[in-house]
Amino acid sequence: MARLNIKTPLTKDKIEKLKAGDIILLNGTIYSARDAAHKRIMQLIEEGADLPFPIKDQIIYYMGPTPAREGKIIGSAGPTTSYRMDSFTPKLIEMGLAASIGKGSRSTEVVNALKANKAVYLSAVGGAGALLSKRIRSVKIIAFEDLGAEAVRKLGVEEFPLIVAIDSYGTSLFER
């Protein structure tokens, strides 16, 4: 069980080194998107329209925060359950998505896509939204503002604590 400091973008050379069970502290940029935003992103892909952010080597965080108090940039900001995004994820991985961050296990289709395209699935601790919010240093809504908590946000993170749950070799921490 290694403890690694990782910087985004998460290029293939970095992904190859990650093993299920590793603990990583992530630094750089990630993008939040959950159920409703995924639906819209898939629509944009179908239409061949521009996407809110580049997919290649990037990381999507399944998260919808509580509102920020005065003087704060974000509220509680932990992961949501990932399986609800399973039907969208393989397509995004094929387009070059490096990682998704959520909680809970993934479908066989997602695991196969991770293996085939050298991508990873990372888990944040579900229900640790207060702690995780402190590791977010910048927040900018970049798409679908009307979705409120579900809008797409560009997040700058520092030492964001994650666990490699399924690595690019298909090894999963959820399997016994």
Partner: peptide, 10 residues
């Protein structure tokens, strides 16, 4: 201590 919800899903 900082008055932040334990979890974002309230």
């Amino acid at each position: 201590t900082e008055n932040i919800p334990i979890c974002q899903d309230t």
